[in-house]
Computed example of a mutant assay.
Amino acid sequence: MRLVRYRSPLGGDVARSGAVVEVAGVDRVVDLGADTLPELLAAGSAPLHAAIAAGAAAAPLLSDVRLEAPVRPGKILCLGYNYRGHVPDGVDPTADDPDFPDVFVKTPNTLGGPADPVVVPAVADDVDYEGEIAVVIGRRAKDVGIDDALDHVAGFTILNDVSDRSWQRRQSQWAMGKCFDGFAPLGPWLVTPDEAGDPQDMLVEVVRDGVVTVSQSTATTIFSVAFVVSYLSSVMTLEPGDIISTGTPQKLPAAQGSHRPLRPGDAVTVRIERLGELTTTFIGGPA
């Protein structure tokens, strides 16, 4: 299932949950009520499937509603350096793997919806993008084992970990470069595990200016989703709706060589196999 939070003028512009379904080749949004997506998923999939089947024919067009971030996480936890880079033939690709994930946080002010533009701050002169798979926690997780970790996942969505490298380089901790307002666009929907499939077998791509700048499979990640959920839950309780963003692959060599910081007017699309696309536009701040 593709599950969303949305607002519609016909519904009084109040946030509701919904399911995106294709009817006669067109995407529509079936209303699922005011409960959050983690609350709906906690009740089981059978009521959701029944509601979707009953409401699909009369559902409004997806293009007629405004999507919000699919969840409002209490915590946004992110990984750095979780994809292996290219190595020459004959070299062990795991030789430089770290022993533990590099974990940092993005604060709640960073969260943005899939249609929200990102303001390029006047004080930031090296804004960059990172296309990532975001894991959505569905069941409370504390001290869970790797074998049970995926049972605590509600689904997957897409996060653009927007970052300003100049602020990131100012100090050993990354928070100031990662936590400008709106620097975590999320969406467009939550894809449930039955439809998302194996999280260690997805192609992650980023497109900028019509050019693919990132293209790499999650098969090359150092730490699996199951490991990361288990690892983080050994320190903190993961609550329904929490987000774990699983890191970004390196830019392709040509893209790295021609890279320039993001400016107002730019747009970046993150597309992930079986999860869809998240396009973020960048704008200038108030004069």
Rank of each mutant, 00 (worst) to 15 (best):
P117M: 05
P70C: 01
P264L: 07
V65Q: 08
P60D: 13
V65L: 13
D181H: 12
A175L: 15
V162E: 07
S215Q: 10
T157P: 10
N160Q: 08
A53P: 00
G33R: 08
L10H: 15
D242A: 03
G90E: 03
D161M: 10
C78V: 05
R271I: 00
Y129A: 07
P264E: 05
V123M: 13
G265W: 07
P188M: 11
V20H: 00
F282N: 01
P185W: 10
R16L: 14
V136A: 07
G285V: 02
G12V: 02
G155K: 06
D194E: 15
I137H: 01
G197D: 04
L77W: 11
A19M: 09
R139I: 09
S217Q: 05
L238T: 03
S63N: 06
V119H: 06
P38F: 07
R263D: 02
M202H: 11
A141G: 07
G187M: 03
T269Q: 05
P188L: 10
L252H: 03
G80S: 09
N160S: 03
D126G: 09
V71K: 00
S45F: 13
A46D: 12
S258N: 14
S17A: 14
H259S: 13
Q256T: 08
V14R: 15
W189A: 12
Y83N: 09
H49F: 12
D89I: 09
S245R: 06
P88M: 04
D116H: 11
A54E: 13
G131M: 01
D148L: 13
E132K: 09
D201R: 14
Q171R: 15
S172G: 13
V191Y: 09
Q250P: 08
I137K: 01
L62H: 09
I52Y: 05
V91P: 01
A154P: 03
V162M: 03
F227K: 14
D242S: 06
V135H: 06
A254C: 00
S63K: 11
